[in-house]
Design a protein around this nucleic acid. Structure first.
Lengths: 198, 198
DNA sequence: CCTACCGATCGGTAGG
DNA sequence: CCTACCGATCGGTAGG
């Protein structure tokens, strides 16, 4: 019976395509990746992809939107999980680092392919990234106001903490010298040191 | 007389082309930049560039080689300028940050376009970057051995310090809130805090 | 989901 | 340093 044949549901097919695109965009770059490349990765011809996605650009947008949504959600959860600003900062940094270790490819594509987003999509993405940065800035400012952190410059401290987390995506390997948890813990610690936290 | 006419010397013409390529590669990316784009920036047609450079790839190689050579030289000078490991580390971080503030475009191209280097060139570049990283690692290890630094992990501390410096290239603006010197000083300070330096 | 194909782009060469 | 042009590639559409 036709209801028994294993036809991958529509959503799964599309998800597979997005996953393949993510891997290829991260590896070769958006421009260097062809629709044929993506098709080959999911056992189709390039033109067949258009039954599932509207365009190559659409794939990039979907990847980036999912990424930033995850990051923002994890950040919010971390900050709302406690009232102590020092602990909030630690958990926010840990969430930041966990994302960059677990979603290395998304992290790459998210920053390196920003310029290949269409005008409107890029504006939205940049604004969401700004929000994320602001969340950290407010956290550090509050810690300073409460006398819990001592920094030369809030702005430079925040950039430093975020950038060192972003860097994790470059070198982290599953099954390597450090587990995700270990890296998250160490980076939380380093961030607190950098902030002169009590 | 012909010796009086202002013909730009050969080297200058080539330097102008490399400079234009740097700006375009950083802005649009290597693949998205056409030889016509570069030509337009120096008031020529694309094909005319081939009188000065062998290929588009050559331009990328030249940009990257110059970059890494500068970084390695500045690092060496910083380390050789004193015997105190704490001061060596501070000066090495300052040199690292200065480079990423002053040569923002080179920094972008140097990391983001690595994958568009031909096999051989890429191997050389990766090896030189490894050398740079090793220089920092040895510095931190020596500081730890001398009891001057206290870190959870040398490796993670070095990655963190390097990555936060790399991040400077993203947001730094000449004439902005901070001067190059201020940024270099603050980052040197943050690195020492992160290392638990005495 | 496939083949055939369009229209546009691009690095590099020819030949002044 | 320029125009003309080659050969190859690519996103996307037509029409099954």
């Amino acid at each position: 019976m036709s209801t028994l044949t294993r036809v991958p549901p529509r959503g799964d097919r599309r998800a597979g395509i997005v996953a393949a695109a993510l891997e290829l965009f991260a590896d070769k770059g958006y421009l260097a990746t062809t629709m044929d490349d993506i098709g080959r990765a999911v056992a189709m011809r390039g033109p067949s992809l258009y039954k599932h996605v509207a365009s190559k650009q659409d794939l990039l947008v979907e990847i980036m939107e999912r990424s930033i949504a995850t990051v923002l959600r994890d950040h919010r959860i971390a900050v709302e999980s406690t009232d102590d600003v020092r602990e909030q900062l630690r958990r926010a940094v840990e969430a930041h680092v966990r994302f960059h270790a677990r979603h290395r490819l998304e992290a790459f594509v998210g920053t390196r392919e920003l310029r290949h987003l269409d005008e409107g999509n890029r504006a939205v993405m940049l604004s969401l990234r700004k929000d994320y940065e602001s969340g950290f800035r407010e956290l550090v400012e509050r810690g300073v106001a409460q006398g819990r952190f001592r920094v030369g410059s809030v702005k430079l401290a925040v950039y430093s903490i975020l950038d060192m987390g972003v860097g994790v995506a470059v070198w982290f390997r599953e099954g390597g010298e450090f587990s995700v948890d270990e890296v998250a813990y160490h980076y939380g610690d380093q961030a607190l040191r950098l902030l002169g936290a009590d």
